[in-house]
């Protein structure tokens, strides 16, 4: 589904990604772990198309109808419309825009692009309500302005709610587990396990293996200095827990 080949990216003259190679197939869960500043959040943003980063070398190949295309020049919205989703580490406040309105606008925009008829208002609302329940939030949450005055946990759950409604093919979750209490973590992990299917894939970006105790990744990659230094199965995360980054790479 996604093939990243020899990817270099920089911002304001600093090179951050220095030759990333990564392949993700449908049905897989990958985790990228690494110390602070290793470039893992940058990788997430570059996959999503953040304008702040410039790709100086390499390709991001994304599969659509069995055909791989380099999406590195695509706008963020083009990527989103083709089923790419990033859960933000720091979700952004959008004052005056209700969660429901954003969900509706996003959902309709993606449906339109994929030539799927828009849902009836009522059906859409019942879909959203179901997903809201899944992430353990009250329906009144839908009327609140996007991320405004949300607690840290609410912001992260809201990202998962958006993901649940938009049902992306590839979800990149940037430190979704940071700043969560145990209960929120469990709920989010359950929701993610529910959303997982053979058709989609997740890329989890995290510091710790807390989340990985709930969601079992097929592959774990350790990143350092803008490169993937080591890859393995979920055992690698446990090893990392014991030895730390310095002991491992």
């Amino acid at each position: 589904m996604l093939k990243i080949q020899n990817l270099y990216a920089q911002t304001e003259g600093h090179s951050i990604l220095k030759g990333i190679n990564l392949e993700i197939k449908a049905g897989e869960i990958h985790a990228i772990m690494g110390p602070n500043g290793c470039g893992k959040s940058t990788l997430a943003k570059v996959i999503a198309g953040h304008p702040e980063y410039e790709i100086s070398q390499g390709k991001i190949l994304y599969e659509k109808n069995f055909d791989y295309q380099d999406i590195s020049k695509w706008t963020p919205e083009e990527r989103a419309k083709e089923g790419l989703f990033m859960a933000f580490q720091y979700p952004v406040e959008v004052p005056g825009v209700s969660n429901l309105n954003l969900l509706k606008a996003s959902f309709n925009s993606i449906c339109k692009h994929q030539e799927v008829p828009e849902m009836e208002e009522e059906d859409f609302i019942s879909l959203v309500k179901k997903k809201t329940e899944m992430v353990g939030l009250p329906f009144s949450f839908l009327d609140r302005s996007v991320n405004e005055d949300f607690s840290g946990g609410e912001k992260k759950r809201n990202e998962i709610l958006q993901m649940a409604v938009l049902s992306p093919r590839l979800a990149v979750l940037d430190e979704t587990d940071s700043g969560l209490d145990v209960d929120s973590m469990t709920i989010i992990a359950q929701a993610l396990n529910n959303l997982k299917s053979k058709q989609n894939a997740f890329l989890l970006i995290t510091h710790y293996n807390r989340l990985l105790n709930h969601i079992k990744p097929d592959f774990v990659h350790i990143m350092k200095d803008g490169k993937i230094q080591k890859s393995g199965d979920h055992q690698l995360a446990n090893e990392l827990e014991e030895k730390g980054y310095t002991g491992l790479v």
């Binding site: 999503a48 198309g49 959008v94 004052p95 825009v97 954003l102 606008a105 996003s106 925009s109």
Partner: peptide, 26 residues
């Protein structure tokens, strides 16, 4: 940041701006 957030949810620039402005004027 707001623009990127909305765009990464599938909204094109114009829709994102109009959503932001409508929110601002809500």
């Amino acid at each position: 940041d707001q623009l990127f957030y909305l765009k990464s949810r599938g909204l094109d620039t114009e829709s994102a701006i109009s959503l932001l402005v409508n929110g601002f004027c809500h």
